[in-house]
Structure formats: structure tokens, C-alpha cells
């Protein structure tokens, strides 16, 4: 079981990762690599209970034809220094209009959680205890003024600069 953080709630879920080339286990929630999915797209869609895991250097564009039938796509941070998942999420949301759940997995750090959220990530699989602890404590370490418009997270435009936004989370009496 791992803890999933989604819509402000924590829940325990169990996902089995299927190695490339391995058989698909029955009766379990599984995460499959992009290549596996593409090779068995129909079988998986019939089976259900699966998500596709996009690990760099996979290209999200390969999933284009299937998006409506994919309830979950996970984007992987192989290490916190590898920021490709941010682009993957934004492309899925903003260019491919993906509506399902985008889940961050892997070795991201706390300070990346708000950034990933802005890029369109909608749930987090949490493996680092300090991230879990901080999120449970209500921490959300970010600057609530944004200088880049992003396409899918609701944010409030501010002033005349078309690229300036502020967070809906911002309290009227934020620490200013």
C-alpha cells in the first residue's frame, strides 16, 4: 500500500508495477509502461484497473489515440533533479486535453509538489516520509503569486500583465 494524495485527501492504494514484457497479473490494480500498454491496448482496456506510467524518455504523445479510455496516467520523477514530468503533465493537460488523473510518482521533493500541481498533476503517490509528513501538516511551500499562466489549474489573473496570476489558495491576508 502507498499513500495517495488527491484533492486534499489521503488514501491508501495498492498498485502493482508491471515490468516490461511481464505477464499481466489478474485481480490487481496495475501500472504498465507505455510500451506494454501500446502492445496490449485492447486487452488492457477490456481488463480495466490499470494506469499507464510515463517514465522519461517516454513521450506522452504516444498515448494520444487512447486518452479517453485512460483513467490514470502517472508521470515519473526518476530523481528530483529530473524535471521532465513537469513537461509531460503540462502537455497532457494543455495540448492533449487529457481529463483523467495525472499522478506524480517517484523521487520528487516537497517543494516540487505545488509546481507539479500547477503543471496539471492531480494526484501524488508519496514514497518519501518527509513529504507525507509535511503534506499531512498542511504545508504547501510555494509563492502564491505566479508569473506564468498555466492552462488547467484555476488561477486568478492579476493586473494588466497577461502572464501574472495568483493562487485561489491565497488568503486575503497572506503574509505580505
Amino acid at each position: 500500500m502507498t499513500t495517495i494524495f488527491k484533492d486534499g485527501m489521503f488514501q491508501e492504494e495498492s498498485w502493482t508495477r508491471v515490468e516490461p514484457e511481464a505477464d499481466l497479473p489478474q485481480n490487481r490494480h496495475i501500472l504498465v509502461p507505455v510500451a506494454t500498454f501500446l502492445a496490449h491496448a485492447n486487452a488492457l482496456k477490456n481488463r480495466g484497473n490499470f494506469g499507464v506510467e510515463v517514465a522519461p524518455p517516454d513521450k506522452v504523445e504516444e498515448l494520444a489515440a487512447h486518452l479517453d479510455e485512460l483513467p490514470l496516467i502517472s508521470v515519473v520523477f526518476p530523481s528530483f533533479a529530473d524535471g521532465r514530468a513537469f513537461s509531460a503533465a503540462r502537455i497532457l493537460r494543455e495540448q492533449m486535453a487529457y481529463k483523467g488523473d495525472i499522478r506524480a510518482t517517484g523521487s520528487y521533493i516537497l517543494d516540487q509538489v505545488p509546481l507539479a500541481r500547477r503543471c496539471g498533476v492531480s494526484s501524488f503517490e508519496i514514497v518519501k516520509p518527509e513529504v507525507l509528513k509535511a503534506l499531512k501538516a498542511g504545508e504547501w511551500p510555494e509563492v502564491t503569486k505566479y508569473l506564468q499562466p498555466v492552462g488547467t489549474v484555476h488561477e486568478i489573473p492579476e493586473g494588466t500583465r497577461p502572464w501574472a496570476r495568483r493562487s485561489v489558495r491565497e488568503l486575503p491576508v497572506a503574509a505580505e
Partner: peptide, 13 residues
Amino acid sequence: RQWSSLHPEFSFL
């Protein structure tokens, strides 16, 4: 400068 400051996508290039 503004657009690149704390860019959510491009802070871990």
C-alpha cells in the same frame, strides 16, 4: 525575467 521566475515547468532543467 518575470516569465522565468519560479517557472513551474522549467525549474529542474
